[in-house]
Simulated assay, not measured.
Amino acid sequence: MSNFVSGNSLAEVAALIGDPARANILQALADGRALTAGELAWHAGVSAQTTSGHLAKLTEAQLIALEKQGRHRYFRLASPEVAEAMEALMLVAANGPKRHRPVGPKDQALRTARTCYDHLAGWLAVSMADSLSARRLIVLSDGAAAVTEEGHRFFSDFGLALDDPKSSRPLCRTCLDWSERRSHLAGRLGAALCQHCLDLGWIKRGRDSRAVTFTPKGVEGFRTTFGITLP
Rank of each mutant, 00 (worst) to 15 (best):
S179N: 10
A146E: 07
D157Y: 05
M128D: 00
N3Y: 04
L66E: 15
I64R: 00
E150S: 08
F222Q: 01
S156C: 03
L66C: 06
P165F: 04
A28P: 07
S9T: 00
K57D: 04
V13I: 15
K204I: 02
R223A: 13
G190D: 09
E150C: 07
E150W: 06
A113Y: 07
D31I: 10
T224W: 14
A186S: 15
C175R: 14
V212I: 12
I228P: 15
A65D: 12
A93M: 06
D118N: 13
F75Q: 00
S6Y: 02
R136E: 15
R135S: 13
V147L: 15
A191L: 03
L58A: 00
H152N: 04
V139E: 13
A78G: 10
W42T: 14
R173M: 14
L132P: 00
F226Q: 06
R182T: 10
M1K: 02
L193F: 07
A34R: 12
L120H: 04
K98Q: 13
G53C: 12
F222Y: 11
P20G: 09
A109S: 14
E150I: 05
L137N: 08
F158K: 08
G151M: 03
Q108I: 13
L193A: 04
T36K: 12
S52I: 02
I228N: 11
R73S: 12
L35M: 15
S179L: 08
E180I: 11
G206Y: 02
T59V: 10
A186H: 05
C194P: 01
A144Y: 04
T59G: 08
A15V: 05
V126L: 06
V126Y: 12
A15W: 05
E84C: 04
S6W: 02
F75I: 03
A37Q: 15
M90D: 12
D199A: 14
H100R: 14
A11W: 01
G221L: 06
R71E: 11
L185M: 03
R99F: 03
A56K: 00
L35Y: 09
W178P: 12
C175L: 11
I228V: 13
L89S: 13
T229D: 12
G53W: 10
A56C: 03
R111G: 14
E220M: 02
R205S: 06
T36L: 05
G190P: 04
G143V: 10
D164G: 06
L132C: 01
S131G: 06
T215E: 06
E60Y: 01
L29P: 01
V212R: 02
D208R: 12
V103F: 09
Q108D: 13
W178G: 03
F158A: 12
V103R: 12
D177E: 09
V219L: 10
P20S: 09
T213P: 01
R73F: 07
L29A: 10
A78Y: 01
V5S: 01
D177P: 06
L10F: 01
G7K: 00
